[in-house]
Structures are given as structure tokens and as C-alpha cells.
């Protein structure tokens, strides 16, 4: 592998080739290329798909058909990495995505230790992460992402309106955590173009049941809100706890063009299913076309 001639073999390759090579490296090595020379300082930063895995991950370039998409999978291994990548992602997003429509998919995997560390940082992650992307069109948040956004969330007026956001998918949302519910509410209430919403609950039923008497009388739900374009809602892994049902009730009451509300109970919930159905029947629906489907495995 020795380069006996000493000429630069790689710095002037087409950027697409360099990106392909960088995506094959562990993320640590990809980041380290920034020190090779001034030409290399920001080459890695153009990659738009960051996958953190248990070996610190790899970066991928955008393979999607649509340009300006952004995919993040976040698997932080240490606190310092979290901070570095938190900053990096924010800078990256505000530089590249503040004016274009974009599509963000984020997965975060945290240990309790790291989640705790997050909670100690006082600033509002929602504003930091989503404050700079008014043109967001589609948001997919996997495990822990809603939790991440909920840290430091402040009540009051949200920073921006997501007038292009049409599709929101959030997975493993804990309805026993008030702040996570606030994240979801803040996001959808400020997305007047929302057409499709998909949420999966956290399957941790015991925690959910215990927490069902949280102080949450529905006062956090805005009363003057209408989802003018919301047509499809899919709720999966529902355990039927109060806060989930309140949330479904809120959507049904305020979505005049809703076509489908599909609800899939968690596999761990068996006895409670009938209670969920009875409760669902009572909810008022703003859309006379709305079909409620209860999907049993």
C-alpha cells in the first residue's frame, strides 16, 4: 500500500467518490480525515446520512431519490460524542437546511446514564434541533428522539411554524411523560399542513399504568386548534392509558377531514382492549368521514 511516488492520489478525486469512501469508514475515522489537510477539513461534513452504531457508527451519503434529505441515526457512545454531534448536527442543519425543503429521520439510542446527562443540560432541545428548519416536510423520529426533544422544553409560544410539514412519524413515545406529550403537541399544533401522523407508544405498560394518575387534566391541549388537512392517523403499541386516550380524543375532536384513525393495541395489553374500544366509541369526531379501525393481531 505504499505510495512510493508521493503524489497526492486522493484529495482531488471527485467528491462523490470521496463521499463513497468516507461512508465505508467508522465514524471516528471519517471525522479524523479533517486533519489530513485544509482540503479535507470539511469533506466529511457534507455527508448527509449519519449512522451511529455500537462501534461509533459510519457516515453515509444521501442515497435517497430526493436531494436535501437528511437522515440521522444517533447512537452516542459517550457524553463527549453526544455534545460534539449535537453541535455538529445543529450547525449542519442550520447551514444546509434552513432554506430547502427537507426530510429528517432520526434515531437516537441512549443509555439511562446518557439520558440523565441530557436532562441536566438546561437548554431546550426542541428549539435547538428543530428551531432552524422551517421548511421541514417530513420528520421521522425513532427511539428516544421524542425524549431527546422533550428535554428542556419550555411552555409558551413555539419558535416557528412548520408550514410545510406534512408527515410526522414518532416511535416509542412515552405517554407517561408529560414533556414528551408536549413535544408531540407542540409539533403538530404548529404544523398547519399536517396530513399524516403516526405514533407508536412505549410498550412499557407497567410504567404507563402506574403513571396514569399524573397531574394532567387535558389543560395542556389547546382548545382553539384545528388540523385542517390531517387525513390519516396511525397509533400503534397503544396500552390504553389515560394520556393516550386523551391524545386520541383530542385528534378526533379537532380533525375535520380525518379519513382513518387506526389504533393497534400493544401486544402486552389483552384484558384492557375492550375498555379501550368502549372509550373510543364515546369520543366525538369532527369528521363525519372518519373511520376508526382497531387492529388486532
Amino acid at each position: 500500500m505504499d505510495n512510493v511516488l508521493g503524489r497526492d492520489l486522493i484529495s482531488d478525486l471527485p467528491q462523490s467518490i470521496i463521499e463513497t469512501i468516507l461512508t465505508k469508514l467508522p465514524i471516528r475515522d471519517t471525522v479524523r480525515t479533517s486533519i489530513l489537510s485544509t482540503k479535507w477539513r470539511y469533506k466529511w461534513a457534507n455527508l448527509t446520512h449519519i449512522v451511529f452504531d455500537d462501534k461509533c457508527g459510519t457516515l453515509c451519503n444521501d442515497k435517497g431519490p430526493v436531494k436535501d434529505n437528511l437522515f440521522y441515526s444517533y447512537y452516542p457512545c459517550s457524553k463527549s460524542q453526544i455534545l460534539v454531534f449535537g453541535r455538529r448536527i445543529q450547525r449542519h442543519m442550520s447551514r444546509k437546511y434552513s432554506t430547502f425543503g427537507c426530510y429528517i429521520s432520526v434515531a437516537m439510542y441512549m443509555t439511562d446514564d446518557i439520558a440523565e446527562h441530557f436532562e441536566q443540560s438546561s437548554s431546550c432541545n426542541f428549539a435547538k434541533f428543530l428551531g432552524g428548519v422551517p421548511c421541514l416536510e417530513r420528520l421521522i423520529g425513532h427511539i428516544y428522539f421524542t425524549k431527546y426533544l422533550s428535554i428542556g422544553i419550555q411552555l409558551g409560544k413555539p419558535p416557528i411554524t412548520y408550514s410545510h410539514l406534512k408527515v410526522v412519524e414518532l416511535y416509542q413515545v412515552s405517554f407517561e411523560d408529560m414533556e414528551e406529550i408536549l413535544v408531540v403537541l407542540r409539533l403538530i399544533v404548529n404544523s398547519p399542513s399536517l396530513e399524516e401522523l403516526q405514533i407508536s407508544g412505549s410498550s412499557n405498560v407497567s410504567a404507563a399504568t402506574e403513571a396514569s394518575d399524573l397531574d394532567f387534566g387535558g389543560k395542556e391541549y389547546p382548545t382553539d386548534c384545528t388540523f385542517r388537512l390531517l387525513k390519516t392517523v396511525k397509533m400503534t403499541d397503544m396500552s390504553g392509558v389515560l394520556h393516550e386516550m386523551e391524545f386520541i380524543k383530542f385528534l378526533l375532536r379537532n380533525s375535520p377531514v380525518l379519513k382513518i384513525m387506526s389504533i393497534t393495541p400493544s401486544v402486552y395489553v389483552t384484558d384492557y382492549r375492550i375498555n379501550m374500544l368502549i372509550e373510543l366509541l364515546r369520543f366525538r369526531r369532527a369528521s363525519s368521514d372518519a373511520e376508526i379501525t382497531f387492529i388486532q393481531d
Binding site: M1, D2, N3, L5, G6, R7, D8, L9, I10, S11, I17, T20, I21, L22, T23, K24, L25, P26, D29, R32, T33, I35, L36, S37, T38, W40
Partner: peptide
């Protein structure tokens, strides 16, 4: 081919990577 190139520099100190590819350090 990209995978092979990546494998050949994986885990190496950046000084070695510079040498393999003939990258001049202008920092």
C-alpha cells in the same frame, strides 16, 4: 473498490494515511 480503499486506511493514524495517499499537510 471504495470499501477496499476504506479498509486500507481504517484505524491508521492520520500521519500514515497522509503517507499512503501522498496528502501534503498544509495546516
Amino acid at each position: 473498490t471504495s470499501q477496499k480503499i476504506a479498509d486500507s486506511i481504517k484505524d491508521l493514524p492520520h500521519q500514515d494515511v497522509r503517507e499512503i495517499f501522498g496528502v501534503e499537510n498544509d495546516y
